[in-house]
Write a protein that binds this DNA or RNA. Structure first.
Lengths: 340, 340
DNA sequence: TCGCGATGTGAGATCGATCTCACATCGCGA
DNA sequence: TCGCGATGTGAGATCGATCTCACATCGCGA
């Protein structure tokens, strides 16, 4: 009711000037007489005028909206990042539009298509695929600033904020080895391919550096959901010569492993040692608490948002690639095997 | 690069017709010759034409965007709902813009202000305050459809989707009483005032119906974060004559209680019985698992989205108020006290 | 054969904000 | 006193899609 339909035209009429002059007064550009400007501002105030952002966007070609396409907004990792991005954007009067790809490349393509026609200013993406990324390359070439988080696209040069997955995984496995383990299972996913590959590499590199032969049968692959991880865990530990330790590549996998092991009556760390990638609230509620590789999650969102805002402000510098180190948080889920 | 700047004008030129005819062919209205229509569609296809939604919005006054203002997107409850809403909207070619109020009325007001100038089509809100809601009433009166979730606004008649907080809380406390408890602590929050009040009422009503006098000293109030809940729990259980059971009003409170009790060396259910409002993944990972009042969380988002879409489609019926029942999930965190 | 409804198309207006261009006035230095 | 830069303002174009209105043609029934 109140300010419905108050346009610049109304303000101009109330101040008895043209729309051009009203615009000049409100946006402080060009020449405007002091007394005139005052009259316009006063009229705008009185009528409760608010510029129509859609009209502005039609002229400028851009809405003050940034698109965020995470793998899954329900994943606490992305929920936290979404929140941080939104806070940062809000400071610069931008809005955040979230569209979850649900780790599905086809859906990711469709989402980007539809966001494109919204004339969105820029994008923060966590690409689902490690290989099928032509649509993202194309998006970037059309001029919309793109910042990648969590995962990079090899063919595309743009700002990115990721985590040292290889190093984190290596540190986790090193820690297990240093506690006497050499039959170390790996529970990895097939969807977040980029990070999964890096974490797999860290696992392999650690084993190799300690002269432990890679045993493919200790690696179990599952879709990144708690349910699938439970099954994969049970499969892995139903084998005759089962692993003495398990490394899980993300927090959903870790949760699945916890449930799977419990259902098999295997206790942690007595029967199996466990280290997970990605810290999560649950890790400190279990008994024992779970040892994890923590990501600096609170830094990713704000930095990605800042990078994007700088690009939107026209900053022209070489793409920045930030790779945060991880941190091993030792709790109680790893047993020391002696004599083995 | 590709379809940058392909407008209706380009399509019309390529098909050698006017913009008006091109629009008619593409949007299937008015009279267009079959052969002409085909030529236009073919040209649009070939050029990769995509209608500019901003321009459409300027005419229609509305962008295909719905705003969602939850209390906190990091809360898994709202993250899940956000996800469900997005999926539902996407089916109808609408986008979801998420702006978290962080349980702060002032921020909620600012967010709505800024979303308003975006010409957003409708809103799904979880109002932060139980009393200060004039801005929401005003928003609704300006004509934008509003659907409330989780919490209602007494002064406003509009669609709402909430949960039977009073009944759920009553059932939880009834269950504790039926297990012989009569000194039952309550850990409640001060921010989500609407739900908190209802849950408090359920607690009071249950006690009253069993003839148990209300003891204000058994009620502890804290901000709805894990940290504050830990403190409040410790405060409550440091008293001489401590409660034999505790009811917590949301999952963050429940987590805080778990940590607080553990830090005091109190074991569940041996020393204290516990029932929490709101189920959460962690509740099944603890030992024992936590008995909770579960909300039908998977129904809230889709229903709210459907209500809003119906309003956007022009449906004119009386506001619908849906109040879902809750469900008590009995696990292992409540002990039976005999003889007491 | 005439007339009118059905069919088909384009010119131009519109949504709201902003920018360009043209024009008018003022005041100061030569 | 003249002239020109500085100052101030409005008409109208523009962004892109859509809609109204005007106009033209066609074909069928009377």
């Amino acid at each position: 009711m109140t300010q419905k339909g108050i346009t610049l035209k109304d303000v101009a009429a109330a101040a008895k000037v043209s729309r051009a002059t009203a615009a000049r007064a409100l946006n402080s550009y060009g020449y405007v007489g002091d007394e005139t400007a005052l009259r316009v501002l006063e009229a705008a105030e009185r009528l409760g005028y608010r510029a129509n952002l859609v009209a502005q966007a039609l002229r400028s070609g851009q809405l003050p909206i940034v698109g965020f396409v995470p793998g899954d907004i329900q994943n606490p990792f992305f929920a936290r990042i979404a929140h941080d991005i939104e806070v940062e954007l809000r400071k610069h009067r931008h809005n955040l539009l979230i569209a979850s790809s649900e780790e599905n490349v086809e859906q990711e393509k469709e989402l980007l298509e539809s966001l494109r026609s919204l004339s969105i200013r820029g994008f923060i993406l966590a690409p689902t695929s490690a290989t099928d990324n032509q649509h993202i390359v194309q998006l970037a070439h059309e001029g919309a600033p793109v910042v990648l988080i969590d995962r990079v696209v090899k063919e595309l040069q743009c700002d990115s904020v990721v985590v040292d997955n290889e190093g984190g995984a290596r540190e986790a496995v090193d820690y297990l080895v240093s506690n006497g383990h050499d039959r170390i299972g790996l529970l990895r996913d097939d969807s977040r391919i980029f990070t999964a590959q890096e974490r797999l590499a860290g696992y392999q590199n650690s084993l190799q550096s300690h002269g432990i032969a890679l045993d493919e049968s200790l690696i179990s692959v599952a879709r990144s959901t708690v349910e699938h991880a439970v099954d994969a865990t049970i499969r892995l530990f139903s084998r005759r010569n089962r692993p003495t330790a398990l490394f899980t590549v993300d927090s959903l996998m870790t949760q699945g492993a916890l449930l799977g092991l419990r259902s098999m009556g295997l206790s942690i760390p007595h029967d199996v040692s466990l280290v997970g990638f990605d810290d999560f609230n649950l890790a400190t509620f279990t008994d024992p608490q779970i040892t994890v590789v923590a990501q600096p999650i609170s830094e990713i969102g704000p930095l990605a948002a800042r990078f994007l805002l700088e690009r939107l402000a026209g900053k022209k510098i070489a793409p920045r690639h930030i790779r945060f180190p991880t941190r091993l948080i030792v709790r109680g889920s790893v047993a020391h095997l002696r004599g083995r």
